[in-house]
C-alpha cells in the first residue's frame, strides 16, 4: 500500500510518501502566505522524489496548523496523533515524544504501539516554540542554522529573565551591550527555551526513551540544553521535521 501524509506547518509544509511501511519520498517547501500552493508543491516534490505517480497513492492524510488548506487530503489527523505515530515509526522504543515546531511545542506520552496516552501543549505563544530562537537570531544578526553550533561552544550558564520573545529581544540586546560573548548569549537563549519544553515533558512524565521531532530537532544546541536539564539522552531522527507527515501517512495505512 502507498500512502502520503502532508503536514502544513507554520513555517514549512512537508510531505512524506510511505510504501509498504517504508518512507520512499519526501518533499518540503516554505509555507509562505499561500498554504494551498505550498501543499501542492511539497506533494509534487515528494512524488518526484519517490518516483511515484499521483494515481498510485491510495490515500492522503493531512495534519499541521494549516491542515484545513490541505484540500487533496481525504482525512485530517490531529497533530498529537501524527507525531505519536511518526515518533514511534522512527524510534519504536520511544515512550515520550517532544515536538517543537516553528509556532508550537508539545510533549506526548505514547504507548508501545504509538497511541497517545497523555499530552501537554504550548501554543499561541512564541516563547515555547521555534519562533523564539528565530526572533533571537534576528536580534543577534546570526543565521538560524548557526545558532545551534555556536551555542555548543559555550560552557557558561546565564539565566534569562524575560519569558516573552519580544521582551527577551531587549534582554539579548542588553547582553550584547555588556559585551557578553555571542556563544554564551545563544546558549542562554537555548537554555531558556529548553526549560519550557522540559517542563512540558515532565508533566507527561519521562518514560523510557525521549525523542525529539519537529524543525527545532535540527538544532544541536537546543538538544544539548534539553539533555542537560532532563539529564538523559534525547534521540533525534535524521529528519525530525518529517515526523508528523510520516505519522499522518502511517495513520492512512492503519485506517485503510
Amino acid at each position: 500500500m502507498i500512502t502520503a501524509g502532508i503536514d502544513c506547518g507554520a513555517k514549512n509544509t512537508k510531505t512524506v510518501i510511505i510504501k509498504e511501511g517504508h518512507i520512499v519520498g519526501k518533499g518540503k517547501v516554505l509555507t509562505g502566505f499561500d498554504q494551498t500552493e505550498a501543499v501542492l508543491k511539497s506533494f509534487e516534490e515528494a512524488l518526484k522524489n519517490a518516483g511515484i505517480r499521483k494515481e498510485d497513492i491510495q490515500k492522503i492524510n493531512g495534519t499541521g496548523s494549516g491542515k484545513s488548506s490541505i484540500r487533496i487530503a481525504s482525512d485530517i489527523v490531529n497533530e498529537i496523533k501524527a507525531i505519536a505515530k511518526g515518533g514511534c515509526y522512527f524510534f519504536p522504543g520511544a515512550r515520550t515524544v517532544a515536538d517543537v515546531g516553528a509556532e508550537e511545542g508539545r510533549a506526548v506520552k505514547i504507548s508501545e504501539s504509538g497511541n497517545v496516552e497523555d499530552f501537554a501543549i504550548n501554543e499561541k505563544c512564541a516563547a515555547g516554540a521555534g519562533a523564539f530562537i528565530e526572533a533571537m537570531g534576528r536580534a543577534l544578526e546570526t543565521p538560524l542554522e548557526d545558532m545551534g553550533p555556536l551555542s555548543l561552544k559555550s560552557d557558561k550558564e546565564i539565566p534569562m529573565n524575560a519569558q516573552c520573545a519580544i521582551f527577551a529581544e531587549s534582554e539579548v540586546v542588553g547582553l550584547i551591550h555588556s559585551k557578553t560573548p555571542l556563544p554564551d548569549i545563544i546558549r542562554a537563549i537555548h537554555d531558556a527555551m529548553a526549560s519550557r519544553i522540559v517542563s512540558l515533558i515532565r508533566r507527561v512524565g519521562v518514560n523510557n526513551d525521549v525523542i525529539m521531532v519537529g524543525g527545532v530537532g535540527y538544532n544541536p544546541g537546543f538538544i544539548r540544553s534539553m539533555e542537560r536539564q532532563l539529564n538523559t539522552k534525547i534521540h533525534v531522527p535524521d529528519h525530525p521535521e518529517f515526523a508528523a507527515a510520516a505519522g499522518a501517512a502511517i495513520v492512512a495505512v492503519e485506517e485503510a
Binding site: K124, A126, A165, I166
Partner: peptide, 8 residues
Amino acid sequence: VSNVCVVY
C-alpha cells in the same frame, strides 16, 4: 491578527 502573541 493574533491577540495573544506579538511575534505571531
